[in-house]
Simulated scan of single mutants.
Amino acid sequence: MKTITSIEYQKKNNKRVSVFLDNKFAFGLDLEIYLKYNLSKGVKLDDEFIEKILKAEDFSKALNYSIALLTRKDRTEKEIITKLLEKDYEKNIIDNVITKLKEYNYINDTIYCEKYINDKLKFSKNGINKIKNGLYQKGVDKGIISQKISMIDKEQEYERALAIAEKKIKTYKEMEMIKIKSKLFRFLVSKGYDFDVANKVISQLIKR
């Protein structure tokens, strides 16, 4: 058993305390953890209880870190897990953090998927293939991706491809027609449009 001989507020952060056991610094704690476990000078702690406190502290740190990440920008469940793994948090801590974030609705891959698609269609003018690949990389469930992607209007997909191709073709000055077609095709495919859409757009533009 070890005895709490002192508890001091940290100078640089008054929302944290330093706990001293047997006159030696033992660990720092978030103020909420300190209050939750009703710690005070003279309280005796066994190793099992100390481990329990430190687990609670790790969870608090991991949760606050995750919330800080999410205040900067929306992230998927996989992205948060990756960030926590980089910080060497244990799997059970990560699982509990993810559960809590979902309870708060701070992470929701379905909503994230919808926003991502809308942003890429509106601002980046990306095609379906590039949007899908981006969502796969971010770890969104394939079922969610398929459901949301299926809602993209195919005619509007063609119109977006046509609009960006019309701008791009103006940069291909004094080129042979075969080279223009080749470059335009590669450009559209790189933006995520499939072969059929790319060929349809090129045929439309070259006729003009």
Results as ranks from 00 to 15, higher is better:
2 K>H: 15
2 K>V: 13
4 I>M: 12
5 T>M: 02
9 Y>M: 10
11 K>Q: 13
16 R>M: 15
19 V>S: 07
20 F>P: 00
21 L>Y: 03
21 L>I: 05
22 D>G: 05
23 N>C: 06
23 N>I: 05
24 K>G: 01
25 F>K: 14
25 F>M: 11
31 L>I: 15
31 L>R: 09
32 E>G: 10
32 E>Y: 10
33 I>C: 11
33 I>A: 11
34 Y>S: 11
34 Y>Q: 05
36 K>M: 12
36 K>G: 04
37 Y>K: 02
38 N>W: 07
38 N>L: 12
38 N>Y: 14
39 L>A: 12
39 L>R: 08
40 S>R: 14
41 K>D: 09
41 K>L: 08
43 V>P: 02
44 K>M: 13
44 K>R: 08
44 K>V: 14
46 D>T: 01
50 I>T: 03
53 I>N: 04
54 L>T: 08
55 K>H: 13
57 E>F: 04
59 F>I: 02
60 S>Q: 15
62 A>E: 04
64 N>S: 09
67 I>H: 08
68 A>E: 13
70 L>I: 08
70 L>C: 08
70 L>K: 03
71 T>N: 15
74 D>S: 13
77 E>D: 10
78 K>V: 09
83 K>D: 14
84 L>C: 11
84 L>A: 11
87 K>F: 01
88 D>F: 06
88 D>T: 08
89 Y>D: 04
92 N>A: 15
93 I>G: 11
94 I>E: 08
99 T>L: 14
101 L>P: 04
102 K>Q: 10
103 E>Y: 06
104 Y>A: 01
104 Y>R: 07
107 I>V: 15
107 I>E: 09
108 N>T: 05
109 D>P: 05
110 T>G: 10
111 I>F: 00
112 Y>I: 07
116 Y>Q: 03
117 I>T: 02
117 I>W: 02
118 N>A: 14
118 N>T: 11
119 D>I: 14
121 L>K: 02
126 N>Y: 13
126 N>Q: 12
127 G>S: 12
129 N>I: 15
136 Y>F: 10
136 Y>A: 00
137 Q>R: 11
137 Q>N: 12
137 Q>G: 10
138 K>R: 05
139 G>V: 05
140 V>S: 00
141 D>F: 01
142 K>R: 07
144 I>T: 05
145 I>Y: 02
147 Q>A: 15
149 I>K: 02
153 D>M: 06
154 K>G: 05
155 E>T: 03
156 Q>S: 09
156 Q>H: 01
157 E>W: 06
158 Y>L: 14
159 E>C: 00
159 E>F: 04
161 A>P: 00
161 A>K: 00
166 E>A: 05
170 K>R: 04
171 T>E: 08
172 Y>K: 01
174 E>G: 03
175 M>H: 06
175 M>I: 01
176 E>Q: 14
176 E>S: 12
177 M>E: 13
178 I>E: 11
179 K>C: 01
180 I>C: 03
181 K>A: 10
181 K>P: 04
183 K>I: 14
187 F>C: 05
188 L>I: 12
189 V>N: 02
191 K>S: 06
192 G>N: 07
193 Y>P: 03
195 F>L: 00
196 D>H: 08
197 V>L: 10
198 A>R: 02
200 K>M: 12
202 I>A: 05
203 S>Q: 07
205 L>S: 00
206 I>N: 06
206 I>F: 14
207 K>Q: 13
208 R>H: 03
